[in-house]
Each structure stands twice: as structure tokens, then as C-alpha cells.
Write a protein that binds this DNA or RNA. Structure first.
Lengths: 209, 209
DNA sequence: TTAATTATCACCCTTTTTTCGGTATTTTCA
DNA sequence: TGAAAATACCGAAAAAAGGGTGATAATTAA
């Protein structure tokens, strides 16, 4: 049981939506809307004074965009939980927001009660997001099943990505350095790259490892 | 609206739990439990015949473990949705399961109705998981705020991880190749590594980039 | 407000590693 | 019975790593 109201800041450029959220949240005893902003810049300036536990944040804002905003706010208050609330359900944006430090990502077609649930989830250490977003996030972990590489080559690539040299890879796989070299040459030609780090970059992008 | 019952397979070694699930699911018109197994090996053998859309899978099983099981099943039926249902809420296991191809991960303290919700979520293209798991997954995207590297060094490391050579990095940052080299040397000493790919591996592990 | 430290930039030389271009045998599997 | 994969070797050229040095700006600590 929480004894204090959760301090919430809202960053949202649509006046009606922003004021609406504030009204709803303030009507519930466990929440307390400290401040609301229609742009990131002002929110960043005041975040130290506002000391919110949770920030409800739109991404499409005039001036600084939401992703940069999240990054900046995180630099100032690393502990704050940021829930993105946007109309966009674009995979790049989702990953950018999460990487920048968002805890949750919910789209604007969700109902008010779901928004309240999302806030509760965050308070309880969760990471609220729509099913579709969750699926995208989970998919990003999964290997590409159509790898052009053979099993052995994948094994070699795995070791490469662990930072191992030719000699170490050879030792690990009980083959000669020259053989490791051969495998790597084939990997490069299949992935159309010509260095270890390029191979790792491509393999990571295409989730071959 | 779905017109056909979702074909479900259950892999769970506890007889009571397994039969319980099957009974509950079969009592609901939109589900149909094709088969149940108390081990991975048998499930793998029959997955082609069973043609499930969804597999409900325990991880602690006699014989082959659940992670390997997921990998094998995915090789045979790449489209099947696998929901892990286990008592363990260990981060390594979660990531291993997701990487191996699990779509959802729910722990065994969730109620039956939540389990049913999870199945529905999967049917509708979602990725069900508990708040705590979701938070772990989301956290895995977020940068480590306590990086030992300077801003410039992080920039260089970012380019390194994109597979760029010394000369390309220098060109991108409008510095000489020798300066890029200096930065890289410093990065190596701070991360205690001695090659590009080791640096990338360490940076990825510690989420410095 | 200094003094000290850190960050950024830049150069040189040597050694090691990697890359590129080949060739070639054996094993495995469809 | 082929084709692909895995194994192994060689030499030249290019890139990276290891060891230094040093200047200037910026930031932090005393």
C-alpha cells in the first residue's frame, strides 16, 4: 500500500487532452499531477523542481521531439518512469523511445481506464505496452530463421561477435587458424562485408546471431 | 471473429497441472487441445502431426530442457506461437526463451483466467508477459547511464559497432585517422579490451551503446 | 581562483592481426 | 553421385594494435 500520492507530470501539446488527463488523474487520490507542459523544453527546465515519479509523454511535440526529450529528462532524473503516449505505432519510434529510457509505450487509442492501468503497472515495477508493441519488442530478440550461413559459419560468427581473434576461434572449435580464416572469408562473402566489425553489425541487424 | 478453434498443445510434466489445463481449455469453444505431453522429446516428434497454433510450455522438464525444446520446435514449425509457463522468473531464462522463439512468458503464479487472457493475446498477435518480465525486457534496451566513456568516445564506439574502419570513423567525425586511433586506444584501456570486436562485445553487454 | 585533471586532438614507429587472392582435400547429405 | 560444407595451406597487402609523445581546451576540485 502506498501512503503518498504518485507525482505525475504530463507533457502533451493538445490542450484538451492534457487538461483532460490532469483532471482525471487529480480526481484519483493516489495520483497527483504536479505540472503539465505543452512542450519538452519547459518540462526539462522544471523537472528538477517538479520531482515527478512518472511522466506521461506525447512524442509529437512542437520544438524538441519526444525522443530527445526522454534522453534529456533521463540525464537529469534517471529514476523517473516515462510512459510514452502517442498516436504512432511505428517500430523505429518504439525502439528509439525504449532505448532513450521510456518504461512504457501506449498508443492513443487506448481508453482512459487502460491509461490508468498503465500508470499503476509502472508504479508496481512493470512496463506497460500494447500487445502489438510487446510483440514487436519480443520479435526483436528472435533469430532470423532464413540465415544464409551454415551452422558452422554461424558458430564462427558467434565467436567473432564475442570479440575473439582467429587463433582463439580456431582453438575454441578445434580447427586450425587457417580453417577459421576460410570460414570467415565465406561469411564475409555471404554477408557482403569485409571486416569483422561489419560482419558483426550486419549479423546483429539481421539477427543471424 | 475466429471461426475455427485454436489448436493447442500442452507440454508440462506435472500430470495434475497438465490435465487441469487441458480440461479448462477444452471446455471453451474457441480452444481445442490437440495433445498434451510430459516431455519435449515426444512433443517434438508429434508437432508435425499435431499442427498446433499455440504451444503452452513448461521449462523445467525431464530430459531435454524447455529452451532447447523451443528451438527444435521452431525449426520444425516456425509459425507456432509458444507461451512459456514456468515457475522461474530468472532474467537469463526469460531472454533465452524469447531468443529461442517464445512469444510469451508467464509465471505459474498467474491465475487461470490470466492464462486464458494470455492465449487470447497471442491469438490476436500480442506477446503476453507479466509486468515484471516486461520491465526486464524493456530494461534490456536501455543504455547504462554510468558509462566510463566520454561523449566523444561513445560516439567513436558507436561508429566502431557499425562496422566502420579507422579512416571512415575519422571522416565521419572530421578528425584525423590518428585521432580516431587515440580515442580507440583510450576506449580499449577503459573497457579493458584489445580489439574492435572485443570492444563491441563489451559495449553491447554493458549497454554502453 | 588557481591547480589539477580530463577530454580532445594529433603524430611516429613497430609488431601483430586481418583481409584478399588463390588452391585443394575430405566429409556429409540430399 | 554430385553439390555444398568443412577442413587446411600459402603469400602479399592492408589494417589494426601496442608503445610512445605532446599540445590545447575544458572542466572539476581544492
Amino acid at each position: 500500500m502506498k501512503y503518498f500520492r504518485s507525482r505525475i507530470v504530463i507533457v502533451e501539446d493538445n490542450d484538451a487532452v492534457r487538461e483532460g488527463f490532469a483532471l482525471i488523474l487529480n480526481s484519483i487520490s493516489k495520483y497527483y499531477v504536479v505540472n503539465t507542459y505543452d512542450n519538452c523544453e519547459d518540462a526539462i527546465k522544471c523537472v528538477k523542481k517538479d520531482k515527478p515519479e512518472i511522466i506521461l509523454m506525447d512524442l509529437e511535440l512542437p520544438g524538441m521531439n519526444g525522443i530527445q526529450g526522454i534522453t534529456e529528462i533521463r540525464k537529469i532524473m534517471s529514476g523517473v518512469e516515462i510512459i510514452v503516449n502517442t498516436i504512432y505505432e511505428n517500430s523505429d519510434l518504439v525502439f528509439q523511445a525504449l532505448c532513450a529510457g521510456a518504461t512504457g509505450y501506449i498508443t492513443k487509442n487506448t481508453s482512459h481506464s487502460e491509461l490508468l492501468n498503465a500508470i499503476d503497472e509502472v508504479v508496481n515495477g512493470g512496463a506497460p505496452m500494447s500487445s502489438k508493441i510487446a510483440k514487436m519488442v519480443v520479435s526483436s530478440f528472435q533469430k532470423n530463421p532464413n540465415s544464409p550461413l551454415s551452422a558452422r559459419e554461424t558458430e564462427v560468427l558467434e565467436l567473432l561477435s564475442q570479440g575473439k581473434s582467429y587463433s582463439l576461434i580456431a582453438k575454441d572449435l578445434f580447427i586450425t587458424k587457417e580453417t577459421a580464416k576460410s570460414h570467415i572469408k565465406n561469411i564475409y562473402s555471404k554477408l557482403q562485408v569485409n571486416s569483422k566489425s561489419e560482419a558483426i553489425a550486419k549479423a546483429t541487424q539481421e539477427r543471424l546471431i
